[in-house]
C-alpha cells in the first residue's frame, strides 16, 4: 500500500505516524479483551463474537449489539441500535473521501477500516495527502489486527469461566459504554461540551423512565429522539431563517 513509498523524504513523520498507530492499536486491542468477554457473557459463541470484530469492526456498535442481546432485547432491536450507532461512520467516510481519494478498487477495504481512530489520525496528520493516507491505513490496520486478537483472547478467556457474572462483567458493560461516551463529553469547547452533556443526561433520563414500559432495548432506541430533537433545534438557531 501507498505508505511504503516516500520513506526518504519524511522518515521522521512516518515514524511518528507508525508509532502512534501501533500505540492506538495496542490500546484498542486491550479494550477488545473486554468486548470478547462481555459478548460471550451475553450469550454469543466465540465464533459469533469473532465475526462481529472481523466484519462489523466498529466498537460502539459491537458493544451495543451484544448489550441488547444480553439484556433480552432481541435481534431486531440489536441490529437497529448497532446501525444507528454506526451512522457516524458514514459521516467520517464522507469527510475522508476528499482527503484519502481512494481509487475504485481501494474503496472496499478503505470503507472497512473507517472508524473513530483511523479517521482521527487521518485528520491529525493533514500536512499532505500522503501523510493522511499513511496515518489512516497504518491506524486502521493496526487497530484491525489488535482488535481481533483482543476479541479472541477475551472471548476464549470468558468461555472458560463457568459464571462470568461472578467477575462483575454485568458492571463492565455500562462502564464500557461510559468509556466510549466520555471523550464525546469532554473533548470539545466548553459550550460544545455543555450541549453534549445536556443531550447525554436527557437521553439517559428518558431511557430510564421508559424501562418499565417497553421491552428491553427499546428505551435506548427511543432516546435517539433526543439527538434528533436537539440537532433540529440547534441547527435552526445557529443560522438565519429561510435557508434550505
Amino acid at each position: 500500500m501507498g505508505w511504503k513509498r516516500n520513506r526518504r523524504k519524511s522518515g521522521g513523520e512516518n515514524r511518528s505516524i507508525d508509532t502512534n498507530a501501533l500505540g492506538i492499536g495496542i490500546a484498542t486491542g486491550a479494550y477488545a479483551l473486554s468486548f470478547g468477554a462481555i459478548s460471550v457473557a451475553s450469550g454469543l459463541s466465540v465464533l459469533q463474537t469473532q465475526s462481529l470484530s472481523l466484519f462489523m469492526f466498529t466498537g460502539a456498535s459491537q458493544f451495543a449489539f451484544v448489550g441488547v442481546i444480553g439484556a433480552g432485547g432481541g435481534a431486531v432491536i440489536a441490529v437497529v441500535t448497532a446501525l444507528l450507532l454506526g451512522a457516524r461512520n458514514s459521516l467520517y467516510a464522507l469527510s475522508l473521501g476528499p482527503v484519502l481519494t481512494p481509487k475504485r478498487k481501494e474503496v472496499p477495504y478503505t470503507a472497512l477500516l473507517t472508524i473513530d481512530e483511523s479517521t482521527a489520525m487521518a485528520f491529525r496528520y493533514n500536512a499532505s495527502k500522503k501523510a493522511s493516507r499513511r496515518a489512516f491505513f497504518a491506524t486502521g490496520l493496526s487497530v484491525y489486527v489488535f482488535w481481533n486478537i483482543g476479541t479472541a483472547l477475551g472471548s476464549l478467556g470468558a468461555s472458560a469461566l463457568s459464571d462470568p457474572g461472578v467477575l462483575g462483567l454485568d458492571a463492565a458493560i455500562p462502564a464500557g459504554f461510559l468509556a466510549l461516551l466520555w471523550p464525546r463529553l469532554t473533548a470539545g469547547s466548553s459550550s460544545e461540551n455543555r450541549k453534549m452533556w445536556t443531550v447525554a443526561v436527557a437521553s439517559a433520563g428518558l431511557a430510564m423512565m421508559l424501562i418499565p414500559f417497553l421491552r428491553p432495548g427499546l428505551p435506548v432506541l427511543f432516546s435517539a429522539l433526543v439527538a434528533v430533537a436537539a440537532s433540529l433545534m440547534w441547527s435552526k438557531s445557529s443560522r438565519p431563517a429561510g435557508g434550505n
Binding site: 460502539a60 451495543a64 466510549l180 437521553s203 439517559a204 431511557a207 428491553p216 435506548v220 432516546s223 439527538a227
Partner: peptide, 14 residues
Amino acid sequence: LLPVSLLAALVAVQ
C-alpha cells in the same frame, strides 16, 4: 449527537 444519546442511554439502562 446520535452516539451521545445512544451511549448515554445504554449506560443508564445497562
